[in-house]
Design a binder for these strands. Structure first.
Length: 153
DNA sequence: CGCGTTTGACCTGCGC
DNA sequence: GCGCAGGTCAAACGCG
């Protein structure tokens, strides 16, 4: 298999492992886990099946921290920024990205730590239904810097 | 000419 | 019931 897909770090891979654990690597009590990544269990898809029957609609969400000076980490996919909002518990704004693809509604959320601007929190939501267009030049670097990730929902 | 980015306004959900 | 926070969409502009 010489396909670049071999290195696909799809969510299902992580979800299958189910070894994700919310390890707080924050040296200090960062407010991020108070009002950013951890909360928001309610999904917009919930209203779709609000008929009263809730199917096993799992929302894939993965968040990992990366130590980089650049907010935009190219993981091999193309992302289109569709919004930016400043969170209250954080002096830095949060960026919202969406995968520009047919039928690929994967969203990515990037936020910088309010205290350590060197730490960038990237949250992925959804699964890619298409192969990677190219190999991320710094993909290996991203994996190395992947300090922690949370997979649930 | 296509699309990616930017900014503002609007909507929804939750808390008080 | 109202307010706050977060999230999303839309229109316009700039760049390639």
């Amino acid at each position: 298999m010489g396909n670049p897909q071999t290195h696909h770090f799809d969510a299902q891979n992580i979800g299958n492992e189910s070894k994700a654990e919310c390890k707080s690597q924050y040296p200090d009590n960062t407010n991020i886990s108070d009002s950013g990544i951890t909360s928001h269990s309610s999904g917009s898809e919930v209203k779709a099946n609000s008929k009263g029957e809730n199917k096993g609609l799992k929302k894939h969400r993965y968040a990992f921290q990366t130590r980089s000076q650049i907010d935009i980490l190219d993981d091999g996919y193309r992302w289109r920024k569709y919004g930016q909002k400043t969170v209250k518990s954080g002096k830095f704004p949060r960026s919202y990205y969406k995968c520009t693809h047919k039928g690929c509604n994967v969203k990515k959320q990037i936020q910088r730590s309010s205290k350590d601007e060197e730490i960038v929190v990237t949250t992925y939501e959804g699964m890619h239904t298409h192969p990677i267009g190219k190999l991320a030049d710094n993909f290996d670097q991203i994996l190395r810097q992947m300090q922690a990730y949370t997979a649930t929902f």
